[in-house]
Computed example of a mutant assay.
Amino acid sequence: MELLENVSNDIRRLLGELDTILRNVDINKVATKTTIRQIVGHMCDSASNNTHRIIHLQYQKSPLIFPDYANLGVNDIWIKIQNYNTYEWDDLIHLLKYTTIHVAHVIQNIDSTKLQQQWISALNEHITLEEMIVDYPRHFKLHYDEIVDLIAQ
């Protein structure tokens, strides 16, 4: 399906651009701006959580109540528990690269008959699988831009 391929390609394109930026950033700048590591870590968590949602939404009864790590401040707890500030920089870049490549692969292989399956967020919003995957590049770009802004400071 063209939608799935387009979303997957958008994610891969953004990842390629961000990967280049992260590999070329002055490591001293990253060391003094722990927020960059935290944002990259959050992006890894987002890829992982969205992969799980995508899979579950293709075989479980809809609407699905799925743990919502992104709302109500829970994502900050994830970042703190995983202590991304001490993660080896090259390893963190690899983690982002490969979790994001995987989510793009999973999106490209979604059963298109399942795109209207829904999950219920912690804010009691009903979100379709299609809405979720279409929003993924926007979310990725939001954090990409935050990182670029922090590097520029």
Rank of each mutant, 00 (worst) to 15 (best):
S121W: 07
I101G: 00
Q58M: 08
Y136D: 05
A104M: 13
K114E: 10
N109S: 06
I127Q: 01
R138Q: 01
F66Y: 15
L150M: 13
H56I: 03
L142K: 02
V134M: 04
V103I: 14
H126R: 13
Y136I: 12
T128E: 05
L92S: 02
I65V: 14
H102S: 09
W89F: 06
I110A: 05
N75S: 14
T100L: 12
D135V: 07
W78C: 10
K141N: 09
H56A: 13
L95F: 09
I107P: 06
L96P: 05
V103G: 04
I147W: 09
E131N: 15
P63E: 04
N71L: 14
K114R: 10
I101T: 06
A70P: 00
N75D: 04
I55H: 01
H94F: 14
L129M: 07
A122F: 03
M132W: 04
D149M: 10
T86S: 08
I120M: 07
L115A: 12
W119H: 01
L123C: 03
H105W: 01
K114T: 09
R53Y: 08
L64G: 00
L123H: 11
V103C: 01
L142G: 04
H139G: 01
I81N: 14
H102K: 15
T86L: 00
I147Q: 05
H102W: 12
I55C: 02
Y59Q: 04
E146A: 03
Q58T: 10
A122Q: 10
L123R: 14
K141F: 10
N85C: 12
I79K: 09
D90Q: 07
L115K: 11
L142F: 01
E125G: 10
Q58H: 05
